[in-house]
Amino acid sequence: MPDATLLRDVTSYSADREAVGHGGPTVRRVTADDDVSTRVADGPRLPSVDEPDPGMVARAADGDAKATRELVERYERLVYSIAWKMCGDPQNADDIAQEAFLRVFRGLPGFRQEARLSTWIFRVTVSAALDYRRREERRAEPPEAGAVVPRLAPGTDVTFDQFEQCRAVLDAMAGLGPAVRRPLVLREVYGLRYDEIGTLLGRPVGTVKAAVHRGRAALLRLLDGRTQGR
């Protein structure tokens, strides 16, 4: 597992980046000539969630029910969304998200608040998703359309067409196997570095790169788009 310093919020901006949210994290447009090892300088890419005050976190760590509920309500969509993107199945996502929250509150007394809480929760959720393999390996068919309702995180500003593209990609990702979906999501959606992903998955960097490449190719085929020698 990478330590918290490897998972930093996206904070840097550059001229060639396209803003996605109002003052929030940005998306960098890449080309086929880009060196993929430097494609993403910061990570993970996450929607903005207001950080809770340290007092509330401390109370939740002590077992205060009200503070615990507030934290769950604040992060439920983030956690559930990460879980769902990692596994592509609403039922598994439910189990993963619950397990993630159990781990969050188990580890909360040790959380030192050096990193953002959302970054730490992201890491815990990814870990829970990677540990949860049982149902995913048995699943033969992708979930039925409309089983989940995708929405934009508050403060995110995209056009209708861009959002529809996202929905199409989400639908296509549900048809990917876990061996390519997980590295693809961690790299292409959340912007982790290959070495971070390799550590999380326990795989060499070369294997991760190959899986991401296969995942992209599969998505393009599923979406009936063009491939240009990637």
């Binding site: 447009r29 995708p150 995209v158 861009q162 959002f163 996202c166 990609v169 999501v185 998505l219 979406l223």
Partner: peptide, 13 residues
């Protein structure tokens, strides 16, 4: 696809 995948970080369910 690159852009759509990156935007997925801000799509929640």
């Amino acid at each position: 696809l690159d852009s759509a995948l990156a935007r997925l970080a801000f799509v929640e369910v």
